[in-house]
């Protein structure tokens, strides 16, 4: 693949176009599984197909536009996705996943307290002092307070887990 084409697909618009094409194909394929109704004029599969086809066409337009507008000099800067901390994003996503995953096992209070402490540490900037004791206290108070407020006053049964 030559330099120009490589940059074409590395540019944000190119990535966006490819993602949209892939999603529209997946969506259109999945729409073939929708049960066709003979009772109503337009079945349940009608609108999903319209959406899928329109998105597919728009994605093609985006890719064509992207390749037309390509200017190697500009693309090199555009293509460079912002070099921020991707590791921290991944860890945050993983932490949220674990938080929701363990909530039903350990309960809302424990899971939320742990989440609060770890997430706050992840979000704090470089060089700032991390007071784990204080974070634990705030996290625990917030979790316990909100659990009881919603459980006793509003009767929302948040996962109780190990504690109850």
């Amino acid at each position: 693949m030559d330099y120009k084409i490589m940059h074409r697909f590395k540019s944000i618009d190119g990535i966006c176009g490819i993602f949209c094409i892939m999603f529209s194909i997946f969506y259109l394929l999945a729409s073939t599984n929708i049960h066709k109704s003979t009772v109503v004029t337009l079945g349940a599969e009608f609108m999903p197909r319209i959406y899928g086809i329109v998105l597919f066409i728009l994605s093609c337009v985006q890719i064509i536009n992207c390749s037309r507008n390509i200017q190697v000099q500009n693309t090199a800067t555009e293509a460079r996705l912002e070099k921020n901390d991707k590791r921290n994003v991944f860890l945050t996503f993983l932490l949220t996943f674990c938080y929701l995953g363990i909530m039903q096992i350990v309960g809302f209070i424990i899971a939320s307290t742990l989440y609060f402490v770890v997430q706050a540490s992840l979000l704090s900037s470089i060089g700032s002092k991390r007071r784990y004791g204080l974070l634990l206290l705030v996290g625990a108070l917030l979790s316990i307070g909100s659990y009881y407020a919603f459980h006793t006053v509003f009767h929302i049964s948040l996962p109780s887990g190990l504690l109850f």
């Binding site: 921020n84 991707k86 979000l123 900037s125």
Partner: peptide
């Protein structure tokens, strides 16, 4: 927004 904050948090000039 949280994910965006996580991305920017390690930036030395980022104010909390």
């Amino acid at each position: 927004e949280i994910l965006k904050a996580a991305e920017e948090s390690r930036h030395p000039l980022q104010s909390e």
